[in-house]
Design a protein around this nucleic acid. Structure first.
Lengths: 151, 151
DNA sequence: AGAAAATAGAACCTTTTCGGTACGGATTTC
DNA sequence: GAAATCCGTACCGAAAAGGTTCTATTTTCT
C-alpha cells in the first residue's frame, strides 16, 4: 500500500495548527499536544524536524515554543512532507544504478522517463497546496473541480 | 519515505516483459525469472497477484504460463500497482473515522478535500501511463514536456 | 543565583510491514 | 503416470515505522 507515513500526517496536522494561529502565533509542544490529541513526545519529535527544515522558528525558555517562519500561504504540503519524511519519489531506480543489478535488467530502464513524469505529477500536486488552503479548503478551487469526498 | 514497494516495482517490470512479447506471448515463471534476474519464488508470488487481478491469464500444465489478458496499450500502471499493493491513496483519513480519535481532531478535517485532490492527481498520472508507453517511452509525449532524467 | 519551563539531540525499544522462501496440492501435456 | 507448471498458504528474518525516555542547553521569572 502506497501511503504517507503517520508522522508526515502528524506534521501536516501540526502545521495547520500554526496556520490557524497565524504568523506571529507561538505554540509550545504541550499546546500542540492538547490541540491535536497527539502524545507530547510524538509532537516533540515531529516539530523538531519541521524546525530543522526551516518551516518553524523555535524559542527556548519559559515562554518559548514554535511559530511559523513564513505566512501560511507560503508553505506547501510538499515542503512539510519533505521536512518529515525526506525527498518525495515513488521510485529510486537510480540510487544503486552503479552496481548493474539495480532494478533488474538495465535494458528495461527507459522506464525512468515515465517515472519522471509520475514523480513530477505527484510533487506538483503537493506543491500546489498551501497551509492556507488546508484550513480554508475551497478557496480558489473552481466549483466544477471540487473533488468528491470519500476518496 | 514515500515510495513504491519493491514488489510493485517487480510487478511493473514483469508486466513490461509481457508487453514486449505481445498479446499472445506466453511466459512461465522460470522464463520471467531469467529475463528479469529476479528469484523464481518472488516472480511466482507476484504474477499470482497480477493474475488474480485479471491482468494476466494463466495456463497450467507442461506448456503453461501466463500471458496478457489485454493489449499492452490497455493496461495502465495504476492497475498494475493496485494489483500488487492494493488501493492507491496517500492518506487513509476516513478509514477509522468512526472512533472519533481518527486523525486527531475531527474539526481539522476539511483537509480531506485537499487529500482528494492529491490522491486524484497521483492516480491520474499513474492511469495515464500504459505498458506500451513503458516500453516505448517517448511515444506520444510532446518533446517540450519530456521530463529530465535523474529525478 | 536558582528554580522552572521550554527546546535540542540522541538513544532505545516495540510493533508492523516488507522481502523472501518453502511446502503441499491441483492441473495439463507428453 | 511422470513431468512441468500454476495455486494457495504459511512461515521467517530483516528492515522500517511508531513511539518513549533520558540528558543537555537555553531562557525567563522570582
Amino acid at each position: 500500500m502506497i501511503r504517507l507515513t503517520k508522522q508526515a500526517d502528524y506534521g501536516i496536522l501540526l502545521m495547520t495548527q500554526f496556520a490557524k494561529v497565524g504568523l506571529g502565533g507561538m505554540l509550545s509542544v504541550s499546546d500542540l499536544a492538547t490541540r491535536t490529541g497527539l502524545s507530547a513526545p510524538m509532537v516533540n519529535k515531529t516539530v523538531k524536524l519541521l524546525s530543522k527544515a526551516g518551516l518553524l522558528n523555535s524559542s527556548r525558555g519559559v515562554h518559548g515554543g514554535y511559530q511559523l517562519s513564513r505566512g501560511a500561504s507560503a508553505i506547501t504540503l510538499e515542503e512539510v512532507i519533505i521536512a518529515v519524511e525526506g525527498p518525495i519519489a515513488l521510485t529510486e531506480c537510480q540510487e544503486h544504478a552503479g552496481a548493474g543489478g539495480g532494478c533488474g535488467l538495465h535494458a528495461s530502464c527507459p522506464t525512468r522517463i515515465n517515472w519522471g513524469i509520475i514523480n513530477h505529477a505527484l510533487r506538483d500536486s503537493l506543491a500546489g497546496i498551501t497551509l492556507l488552503q488546508m484550513i480554508h479548503p475551497l478557496l480558489g478551487v473552481p466549483r466544477a473541480k471540487r473533488p468528491q469526498l470519500r476518496t
